[in-house]
C-alpha cells in the first residue's frame, strides 16, 4: 500500500514539466526515504535524478519498496488536470497495475481521482559516486535559463569555463560567436540573486546546448541553480526543491576524439 499526500501539489506538476521533455518512460521508486526517480534520455547522454523526501509529504505511507513504471507524458496529462492550489495524493495498492492521482481543492469542495495504467520498464540504475568538483557555480536559475536560450540561437554547443575571474559561457556558429561572463556577485539584496563561484582549480568543458536547455524546464522549481564541474566528469545541474529534495541533471561532456 502506497499513499503519499502532498499539500503543495503544484510541486509535483512542476517536477513533471521539468523531466518529461528529457525522458519518455521511467520508474518512480518509492521507499521509506522518499519518492525518487533516476532515468537517462534515449541517447544516454543525460541523466535525471529526482528525490522528494518522505518528510516533505504531509502524509507518507509506503509499506514496502515499490517501483512504478510510468509514461511521463501521460503523468503530465493527468497532473495538468489538477488545479495549481490542489492537494495531490498518489495511491497504489501492492501488486496493482495502476496508480491513482487524487486532487483535492484547497477548501475540499472538489475531489477528483484519476487512475493511470502502469507499465513495465526495463531500466538500469546507475551508481553515481560522490565526487569533489573542481568548480561549483551557484546563480539565479532564470539567469542560467536565459544564457542557455540566448546561446542556442547562435550555436549548438557551449564551452563553460570557470576561472577566478568568473564563469564564461561561449558558443560559436555559422553567424558568429558569443561569450557571456558572469562574475561572482555576492553583494545583492537577496541571496537568491547572487552568483557564487567556489573554485578549487580552473576548469573548462564543452556541452550540447539542447540538453542544457531541456534542464532549464526545472527553473520554476527553484530560484537558484548550481552547476558542478570537473574535467573528467559529467556536469551536474541541480535545482533544489525547497524542504523536499532536488532535481539533478547529469550531462556527459563533448570530448576530444
Amino acid at each position: 500500500m502506497l499513499e503519499l499526500r502532498l499539500v503543495q501539489g503544484s510541486l509535483l506538476k512542476k517536477v513533471l514539466e521539468a523531466i518529461k521533455e528529457l525522458v519518455t518512460d521511467a520508474n518512480f521508486d518509492c521507499s521509506a526515504t522518499g519518492f525518487s526517480l533516476q532515468a537517462m534520455d534515449s541517447s544516454h547522454v543525460a541523466l535525471v535524478a529526482l528525490l522528494l523526501r518522505s518528510e516533505g509529504f504531509e502524509h507518507y505511507r509506503c509499506d514496502r519498496n515499490l517501483s512504478m513504471g510510468m509514461n511521463l507524458g501521460n503523468v503530465s496529462k493527468m497532473l495538468r488536470c489538477a488545479g495549481s492550489d490542489d492537494i495531490i495524493t498518489i495511491k497504489a495498492d501492492d501488486g496493482s497495475d495502476t496508480v491513482t492521482f487524487m486532487f483535492e481543492s484547497p477548501n475540499q469542495d472538489k475531489i477528483a481521482d484519476f487512475e493511470m495504467k502502469l507499465m513495465d520498464i526495463d531500466s538500469e540504475h546507475l551508481g553515481i559516486p560522490d565526487a569533489e568538483y573542481q568548480a561549483i557555480v551557484r546563480m539565479p536559475s532564470g539567469e542560467f535559463a536565459r544564457i542557455c536560450k540566448d546561446l542556442s540561437s547562435i550555436g549548438d554547443t557551449v564551452i563553460i569555463s570557470v576561472t577566478k575571474e568568473g564563469v564564461k559561457f561561449s558558443t560559436a556558429g555559422d553567424i558568429g560567436t558569443a561569450n557571456i561572463v558572469c562574475r561572482q556577485n555576492k553583494t545583492v539584496d537577496k541571496p537568491e540573486e547572487a552568483t557564487v563561484i567556489e573554485m578549487q582549480e580552473p576548469v573548462s568543458l564543452t556541452f550540447a546546448l539542447r540538453y542544457l536547455n531541456s534542464f532549464t524546464k526545472a527553473t520554476p522549481l527553484s530560484e537558484t541553480v548550481s552547476i558542478s564541474l570537473s574535467s573528467d566528469l559529467p556536469v551536474v545541474v541541480e535545482y533544489k526543491i525547497a524542504d523536499m529534495g532536488y532535481v539533478r541533471y547529469y550531462l556527459a561532456p563533448k570530448i576530444e576524439e
Binding site: 537517462m40 538500469e124 551508481g127 554547443t157 566528469l233 547529469y250 563533448k254 576530444e256 576524439e257
Partner: peptide
C-alpha cells in the same frame, strides 16, 4: 572535433 560522450562511460550500473 569533439565527440559526444555518454553517461554510461562515467557511471556504471549498481
Amino acid at each position: 572535433v569533439r565527440k559526444q560522450s555518454q553517461i554510461t562511460t562515467f557511471f556504471s550500473p549498481g
